[in-house]
Amino acid sequence: MTDTAILHIPEQDKPLNKKQKEFNVLSETIEALDRQLADLQQAYDEMLRRIPSDLDPLVREYQGYRADIVNLWDRTYEAEHFRKAYQTKLAYLIIENAYDLIKNHDRSELKPVFNKYSATDIDVLLEEERLRESARIEDPAFLLESVYEPEPEVSFHELSEEEQQRIKAERREQRMDQRTREAQQAKTTKSVRSVYMELVKTFHPDRETDEGEKQRKTETMQRITKAYQENNLLSLLKLQMELEQIDRSGLENLNKNQLSYYNKILRQQIEELGQQKVLIQQKISAVCSLPYQHANSQVTVIAKFNTVINGLKVEIKNIKKTYKHWLVPSQLKAYLKPFQIPDQPEGELEE
């Protein structure tokens, strides 16, 4: 926010009283929250800009290697290199990984592989999952985070790779636009609207008949509107004080009732800014897996985002090595032998 450190009661001939000290602390807290919110918003916007170029290609590459491994397991199973106990484990791994890749990463080419080992057709399972997701629409919290995306007339997976990427980019842009609109709507807090409406009632120029006074009120309203659009409570309060002929040097002379009013408004703004901070922190956490309580600066957030990218690069190197390693049946068998299917009793495997 602009125009910081604008409300401060100086300590002159006598010490400040309790309400004056509270006024200064509240004002400073709002300025700090304003700066932090702007900093976190810049971090979030930077991550969104970088996702299509820096993160998405790595995710696609990694999931591509996962799909290669699923196909490798399928070929190994059919080649009958292993006894039934090993094949049972391979079938489990194929089902688990293929389902995730089909549902969450658009790898529909794995559907035949999944159906080969699953007792239930993949499309039936996906429809059941879709119905469960649809039921969540009744949750208001879910509605706030959702963006409606109409189903294409042609199945997404029947489109070319280029067309799929185009649609994904369009949907990503739509989500970003929606988030921007939501952010703008949420940006103006109740405390700011409250002060703004009081000022508008007094200084709106439309009903003014005197041209000179109308011009003065028009200029004042421009300043009021600018502060309102910036969600800058301190600027609005400063304007209110100026218009009430309370200059900065006279802040120490505010009476008890005036200070109580201003402190109440400032406390309300702090609470609302704190809620905005949590919301942007949670959005950041969803992108880079940083615990939202730790998302307190742009430097920290971007450092974590870079760590995610670098970590994914390492994972790609590792999965490439694993794939090459498992091309040798004996090495894949060495991995499968100690592997235990969840919720199944442990048993010995025969060589």
Rank of each mutant, 00 (worst) to 15 (best):
Y292T: 02
L72I: 09
V278F: 08
E153S: 15
A227Q: 09
E158R: 13
K324R: 10
D121Y: 05
L237M: 12
Q41M: 13
Y292G: 04
V278M: 11
Q276H: 15
Q245L: 11
E252M: 10
T88P: 05
E211C: 03
L236I: 05
T300I: 12
E162N: 12
A227D: 06
Q293W: 03
Q269V: 03
V299A: 15
L7Q: 01
Q87W: 06
E219Y: 03
F142P: 04
D210W: 01
V328I: 13
Q42M: 10
D106R: 14
M221C: 01
Q340F: 01
Y335S: 04
Q87F: 04
Y99F: 15
F114E: 04
T76I: 03
L48D: 12
I270R: 00
L131D: 06
V308R: 12
P342E: 02
A183H: 10
N318T: 05
E272L: 03
T120V: 11
E11W: 04
I122L: 09
Y99Q: 14
L126P: 04
Y196M: 02
E348I: 10
K317F: 09
Q229G: 11
G311E: 08
W326V: 00
P15C: 02
Q275I: 13
Q269P: 07
K190S: 06
Q293Y: 08
Y262N: 00
Q258R: 08
L125M: 10
T225Y: 12
V192N: 02
P52S: 05
Q184F: 13
E28H: 06
L37N: 02
K238E: 10
N104P: 07
E272K: 06
G250N: 12
I69A: 10
E11T: 11
A43L: 01
S160I: 00
R166S: 11
E170C: 05
V147G: 15
Y44M: 09
Q268V: 01
L237S: 00
L266F: 00
N17Y: 10
V301K: 06
L254A: 05
E351V: 09
L251T: 06
A119T: 14
N310F: 11
Y228D: 02
E271R: 07
E78T: 10
T307P: 03
V314Y: 11
Q164V: 01
K324N: 15
Q229Y: 05
F156D: 13
R107G: 02
I284L: 06
V59P: 03
L332H: 03
A67R: 10
M176I: 13
E153P: 03
S297R: 07
G64S: 11
V192P: 08
K14I: 05
Q184P: 07
L33V: 03
I95T: 09
A186W: 13
H105M: 06
Q36F: 02
Q215H: 08
E271T: 11
I122G: 04
R248S: 15
E252T: 14
D54Q: 07
H157I: 07
L349S: 09
E162D: 14
E198C: 11
K116R: 11
D247S: 12
L125P: 01
L7I: 00
L48I: 06
L234A: 02
K190T: 07
E173K: 15
T4I: 09
Q87N: 15
D177G: 14
L251N: 07
Q276Y: 03
Q41H: 13
F339C: 02
